[in-house]
């Protein structure tokens, strides 16, 4: 994991914390939503992840005319055998980058989201399993809304973590300017892991010990979001499960075989900030900021087990 994250950091410089979270998401078996203004390296990050882990990779640029069949695949008629054969779409890869997800029509979005949730694709009555590990990294531009179909709040729940990269620090940017011209950043990324290793990490993470009191802490946090005056809709059960899984992976980072309340707090904001619906009418990045603010406040209010 350290290796993966280090490679990612090489690709997207100055974003070590985010790189760590991306790896966390991959190991937890969740999907990632990158939300930020254009040009901060969302796509680079995803590609670097695929390369570092040696995952098969596909990139789908979502546009307004993208149809479900374009990503899932279609039945193709074979003239010689006079049969239909399934030709898998770009989704049948281990890591799929769904670029600008909010530009596609809702039909396509929901096809992708369903595949994410089920881990399989149902087409014309036949079911096709997706490869493992299967991870979707979706990017979304929160600023440019014209001609887009922003994801419904309920669909956002399906992404385990949401990250925003943010502009790099000035010195990093300067360094970028100096080095970028020479070699594409992705070339620097070496394959340091394998899909099998990722799978192994996943099983390892899922076997970590989650003490009853910590589980109770997670549940109390969820209840606090549901009771909070500023929050219209609190964390769902899926959110609770996702937080548990993310916290497990977080514990793996610390080379521990059990989860502490600190692990929970570390992943709380990226895991839940996009899942709570605020009462105020702000949308987009400002809403995420405010949700993060609220969640941090909650961690101070809900007493941790000791």
């Amino acid at each position: 994991m350290e290796r993966i994250s280090a490679e990612l950091g090489r690709a997207v410089q100055g974003k070590e914390a985010q790189a760590r979270l991306v790896t966390t998401c991959l190991v937890s078996g969740g999907h990632l939503l990158l939300e930020d203004v254009p040009g901060v390296g969302k796509t680079t990050l995803a590609e670097a992840l695929a390369r570092a882990c040696g995952l098969s990779f596909a990139r789908v640029q979502f546009t307004a005319d993208l149809m479900p069949a374009d990503i899932l695949g279609a039945q193709i008629f074979h003239a010689q055998t006079a049969t239909f054969q399934f030709r898998p779409g770009p989704l049948f890869r281990q890591l799929v980058l769904a670029d600008e997800l909010n530009r596609a029509p809702p039909r396509t979005q929901s096809a992708l989201l369903e595949a994410m949730a089920q881990g399989q694709v149902s087409l014309d009555g036949s079911t096709h399993a997706l490869p493992s590990p299967f991870t979707v990294v979706a990017t979304q531009n929160p600023v440019d809304f014209s001609g887009t179909y922003p994801l419904p709040d309920s669909q956002l729940d399906r992404f385990m973590l949401r990250l925003s990269l943010g502009h790099p620090a000035p010195d990093v940017e300067a360094k970028l300017l100096a080095t970028r011209g020479r070699a594409p950043p992705l070339d620097a990324v070496q394959t340091v892991s394998s899909p099998e290793e990722v799978d192994m990490l996943r099983t390892l993470a899922s076997e970590l010990r989650l003490d009853g009191t910590v589980a109770d802490y997670v549940v109390r946090l969820a209840r606090a979001t549901r009771e909070h005056g500023d929050i219209e809709r609190g964390a769902s059960t899926r959110a609770v499960l996702a937080l548990g899984a993310a916290a497990r992976t977080q514990a793996l980072w610390e080379a521990r075989d059990f989860v502490t309340p600190g692990d929970v707090r570390a992943v709380l904001v990226p895991c839940w900030a996009h899942r709570v619906l605020l009462r105020s009418a702000v949308q987009g990045v400002a809403a995420r900021d405010e949700a993060a603010h609220l969640l941090e406040e909650l961690t101070r209010k809900v007493p941790a087990p000791r």
Binding site: P142, V143, D144, F145, S146, A281, V282, Q283, G284, V285, A286
Partner: peptide, 8 residues
């Protein structure tokens, strides 16, 4: 101009 967000 670029969209910066939505508000009421």
């Amino acid at each position: 101009g670029d969209v910066t967000g939505l508000r009421e």
